[in-house]
C-alpha cells in the first residue's frame, strides 16, 4: 500500500517536471526569433518595460477578478501601444519614456498588490517565475500564445526584416511599416505575458536577448540566428530545470544562468558574418 502511494507521488512529481519542461520549451521556441528582433532593433529596455508592467497586469487581474493571463496581456498591449503613441509625439527621448513607464507601472503594480489585503499574492513567483507549478491549463495557454506569436512572426518575417534593416526603404518598397511595427509590439506583449510564468517579470528580457546574442556568434543569416537562438533557449530550459531538480535551485534563474553560460562559451567561437 505504502509502495503504491509512493509510486503515485513519484508519478505526480514526474508530471510536474514534464509540464514544466514542456512549458519552458514552448516559451523558448518563440523566445529565439523574437529575441533576435529585440537584439537587432535594440528593444531590450522596451522588453523590460513591458515585463515590469506585467506585474501591474497581475495585480489588476486579481483586483478585478479577471483571468491573470488575459489581464497581463491586456496591460502589456496597452503599454506597448501607449509607448508607440508617446514616442510618435517626440517630446521626450525614448529611453526616458521607457524609464517613466517601466518604473511607474512596476510601482503601481506593487501598490495595488499591497492593497489587496485579503488576497495573498506570491511576489517571489511573479518576479522570478514559478515553472514547477505549471498546470495543464497553463500549458494550453502557453502553447496557443507561442503558436500565435510564431505564426505571426513567420507570416511577417520578410517585412519585419525589411523594416529592421531600413524602414524608409521598406516603406518605399510597399511594406506597411507602422502596421508591421505594431504587430511586433503585440507579439512582444504576448510572449512576455506567457513567459512570465516561466522566468518571472525580472528575467524575461534575459530569456529573450541572451540566446539571441549567443546565436549571433555562429549565424550568417537572420533565419539561422533565429533558429540557433531557439535551440540555445531550449537547451537553457532543459539544463536550468535539471539544475533545479537535482540541486534544488529556483528554476527561472537557473534557466537564465544556463543561457548565460552558453553565451560565455560562444565568446570563444569565431564570429560569423
Amino acid at each position: 500500500m505504502a509502495a503504491i502511494i509512493n509510486m503515485g507521488k513519484g508519478a505526480n512529481m514526474i508530471d510536474f517536471l514534464i509540464y514544466a519542461l514542456l512549458a519552458g520549451l514552448g516559451v523558448a521556441l518563440v523566445a529565439g526569433p523574437l529575441g533576435c528582433f529585440v537584439v537587432w532593433r535594440r528593444m531590450a529596455y522596451f522588453g523590460d518595460t513591458l515585463a515590469h508592467s506585467a506585474l501591474l497586469g497581475v495585480s489588476l487581474g486579481v483586483l478585478l477578478n479577471v483571468d491573470l493571463g488575459i489581464a497581463v496581456t491586456a496591460v502589456c498591449l496597452l503599454m506597448a501601444l501607449g509607448l508607440v503613441a508617446l514616442d510618435h509625439q517626440g517630446v521626450l527621448a525614448l529611453d526616458t519614456l521607457l524609464g517613466i513607464l517601466s518604473h511607474s507601472s512596476l510601482a503601481a503594480g506593487l501598490v495595488v498588490i499591497s492593497l489587496l489585503s485579503d488576497v495573498r499574492v506570491d511576489l517571489m513567483s511573479l518576479l522570478f517565475g514559478d515553472l514547477l507549478s505549471v498546470t495543464k491549463a497553463d500549458l494550453w495557454v502557453i502553447y496557443s500564445g507561442a503558436g500565435i506569436a510564431i505564426l505571426l512572426l513567420a507570416t511577417l518575417w520578410k517585412s519585419l526584416i525589411s523594416i529592421t534593416v531600413e524602414p524608409e526603404l521598406a516603406a518605399v518598397e510597399g511594406v506597411k511599416v507602422a502596421r508591421v511595427r505594431t504587430a511586433l509590439m503585440v507579439i512582444t506583449a504576448l510572449v512576455i505575458a506567457i513567459a512570465m510564468k516561466i522566468v518571472g517579470v525580472l528575467l524575461i528580457t534575459a530569456l529573450l536577448i541572451i540566446p539571441a546574442a549567443t546565436a549571433r556568434r555562429i549565424s550568417a543569416t537572420p533565419e539561422s540566428m533565429a533558429m540557433v537562438a531557439s535551440l540555445v533557449a531550449m537547451l537553457a530550459v532543459v539544463s536550468g530545470l535539471g539544475a533545479s531538480w537535482y540541486i534544488d535551485t529556483p528554476a527561472g534563474p537557473s534557466i537564465v544562468i544556463s543561457a548565460t553560460l552558453a553565451f560565455c562559451l560562444s565568446l570563444g567561437l569565431k564570429q560569423k558574418g
Binding site: 526584416i161 534593416v165 549565424s219
Partner: peptide, 19 residues
C-alpha cells in the same frame, strides 16, 4: 546612407533580395 546593426547577420545578396 544606411546603418545596419552588426548584430543583424545579412549578406549583401540577401539585403538586395528584400527588394
Amino acid at each position: 546612407k544606411i546603418h545596419i546593426d552588426p548584430t543583424l547577420p545579412i549578406s549583401t545578396c540577401r539585403f538586395l533580395q528584400l527588394a
